[in-house]
Structures are given as C-alpha cells and as structure tokens.
C-alpha cells in the first residue's frame, strides 16, 4: 500500500491518494479471482442513484425557490410603505389646509370685538410658543455630526442624550423656539433613540443634525456656550472629534410641530379664561 510510505503529516497527499474508497479495492480482492470484469450495477445501486438525483433535485428546487420568495416579500413591503407614505402626505396637506381655514375663520369671527381680539392675540402667542404655529426670527443654527473618518463605536457618534443636553442648553440660554432637522419641538416632543436612529416627533433623523433656535441674536450664542449643554458639546468636540458648528441666523423659519405632538387628552384648563 502506498499509505505506509507516505509521511503521516502529509494529509492532503493522503486525501488525494485515497480518493476512491479503499473498500472498492478490498471488495475486488475478496471476489473470486476468476471474475474480475465489470459488473452490472444491481437494483440497490440504482435505488441509491435515484435517491441521489432526488437529493440534488430537492436542493436545486430549494435554492431556486428560496431567493425569489424573499425578494417578492420585500418588494411587496416596499410597495405598502410607499402607498402609506403617499396617504400620509395627502392627509398632512389636508390637515394643513383645514388649519389655515380655522385661522381665517377665527380672524373674521373676531372682527370688531375687543375681547375676542384679545383672546385671539393670546391664542396666537400660545400657538407660537407651543409650536403649533410656524415662527420666524433671528437666532442660532448649530450643526452637529458624528466624528468624521470612520471613528466608529459609540464614542464618535452623536447620541440622543447629546442632542438632549444641547437643546436643554438652548432653552436655558433663552431660546424661544427650537427645531432639529426641521422638526419643531413642542411641549410633548421627545428626543430619543429608536433602533439605530435618533427620532424627534417620531420621525427618524439622519446626521448631520441641524438645530435651529430662535432667540436674542445678541446673547443667545454666547449664553449657550456658557450653559452645561454648550460646555458638554465643547468637550465632545475636543475629546471625541464630534462636529459642532455654531452660526448665527438673521431670519430662521421654524415650521409647526406635527398635530399629534400638540394634542392633550388629560390635562384640563383650570379657572376662567383671562
């Protein structure tokens, strides 16, 4: 046998030499010496060959049917998502129209009535303050982003808490209205991580994060840097390489917060109207 002369370490060589099962050779030497010719395969061998074909066929069928199935489900889901997005956009437009209509009607209804005019003025202020109405004014624009250059891991990323302390700092510095990537913060807005993205008003944001705040253009920026939020961000910038840029804006336009973020169900007004 060649195996005896092969060094045992030469595994690959042995594998190549022994490619045919030794049993075939052993079976031949067991056979009577008078009958070494080719033998017709018997029924058992044919059954095994059919089984082999079956195995190959099933495997091929599985490989073929598996992939398109997933692709079909995927595209069906995409279609549904797109349909829903179109519906949402249409409903949002309708909502905006109706809201404008309400404002117009309020304007006409209160003409010539002193008390009604006062109420309407108070309502307008409240709407601007709570984020129910779009606002325009001077302020700061802050751009925050993950550390550049693949510095992955949690250290190089902007987290929800980072945005929270930033916005807190802005309120503390005297901001009157704040929006993140165009999502206006209402009293009910939360800044939180959902999955891999930070969401504001239940909308997922993607970096860079642009935070716009309306406030006193003379003091807002300087006071913000003094706040713990501003200090924390200067730390993040120097220690972890996060992008943090402050710009002043003469005329920032902040859209209204979405209607669901302005609904209250349980809190009720106490006392008389002013």
């Amino acid at each position: 046998m060649p195996r005896a002369t092969t060094p045992p370490s030469d595994v690959l060589r042995r594998l190549l030499d022994d490619a045919v099962d030794d049993d075939y050779g052993a079976a031949v030497s067991d056979r009577q010496p008078g009958n070494p010719t080719l033998q017709r395969p018997a029924a058992a061998a044919i059954v095994v060959v059919v089984a082999f074909g079956l195995l190959v066929g099933i495997a091929a069928g599985q490989a073929r049917s598996g992939a398109p199935q997933e692709a079909r489900e995927r595209s069906a889901l995409f279609d549904r998502i797109e349909n829903r997005q179109v519906t949402i956009a249409a409903l949002t437009d309708r909502l905006e129209q109706l809201r404008q209509q309400i404002l117009d009607l309020q304007g006409t209804a209160t003409e010539g009535n002193e008390r009604a005019r006062d109420l309407l003025a108070g309502l307008t202020t409240a709407r601007a303050l709570t984020g129910a109405a779009p606002v325009i004014g001077p302020g700061v624009q802050i751009t925050a982003d993950d550390a550049p250059g693949g510095q992955s891991g949690p250290e190089g990323k902007v987290l929800d808490v980072d945005l929270q302390v930033l916005v807190n700092g802005l309120w503390q510095a005297g901001a009157e209205a704040v929006a993140i990537n165009g999502n206006r913060l209402s009293p009910l807005s939360a800044i939180r991580t959902a999955g891999r993205a930070i969401t504001v008003n239940y909308r997922s944001l993607s970096p860079p994060y642009v935070i716009e705040a309306i406030g006193d253009p003379q003091t807002l920026q300087a006071r913000f840097i003094e706040t713990p939020g501003g200090q924390a961000w200067l730390d993040l910038q120097t220690n972890f390489g996060l992008r943090f840029e402050l710009d002043s804006g003469d005329s920032l336009t902040l859209a209204a917060a979405p209607a669901p973020r302005l609904l209250i169900q349980y809190a009720q007004r106490q006392g008389e109207l002013p």
């Binding site: 049993d23 075939y24 050779g25 079976a27 031949v28 018997a42 061998a45 060959v49 089984a51």
Partner: peptide
C-alpha cells in the same frame, strides 16, 4: 460517493454493496 463510484466503475472495481454503503 457518486463520483467515487463512477471512478471505481471505470477502474473496473465497482461493487454495488460498497457503493450503497458508502453513499
């Protein structure tokens, strides 16, 4: 197992018992 059997067949040492068992 099938290619081993095919080679054994061409070598003239095919044996169906060995084939079935090896498969």
């Amino acid at each position: 197992a099938v290619f081993g059997a095919l080679r054994a067949y061409l070598d003239g040492i095919f044996d169906d018992k060995v084939f079935v068992i090896s498969f």
